[in-house]
């Protein structure tokens, strides 16, 4: 399973660094950075909690087939 922090969404709440400290850290400006991109099977629950607890839903799993996998999604909202 692969992990991605969406940089557009991340606001640096830092909850991920508390619930999955081995997988996330804050960069020098206070934004979340994934320390591990390919997550081991055994660590999936901890990271899943981070995915769930992020107030802005900035963390996501990016697995799936390389082409044509994800269903079309609406364009991201204007920022």
């Amino acid at each position: 399973m692969r992990l991605r922090v969406d940089p557009v969404k991340c606001q640096g709440y830092a909850i991920c660094t508390e619930v999955a400290a081995r997988h996330f850290t804050l960069d020098d400006w206070g934004f979340a950075q994934a320390l591990v991109v390919d997550v081991d099977e055994g660590d999936v629950p901890a990271v899943t909690e981070a995915v769930r607890e992020c107030p802005v839903r900035a963390i996501r799993w990016i697995d799936g087939p390389a082409t044509g996998g994800p269903a079309p999604r609406p364009a991201p909202p204007a920022v």
Partner: peptide
């Protein structure tokens, strides 16, 4: 698509969506 010329996080890439 929307008129907003700003990048989006990937994936998905344009060849997907």
């Amino acid at each position: 698509t929307t008129g907003i010329a700003r990048p989006a996080d990937k994936p998905p890439r344009p060849f997907q969506v």
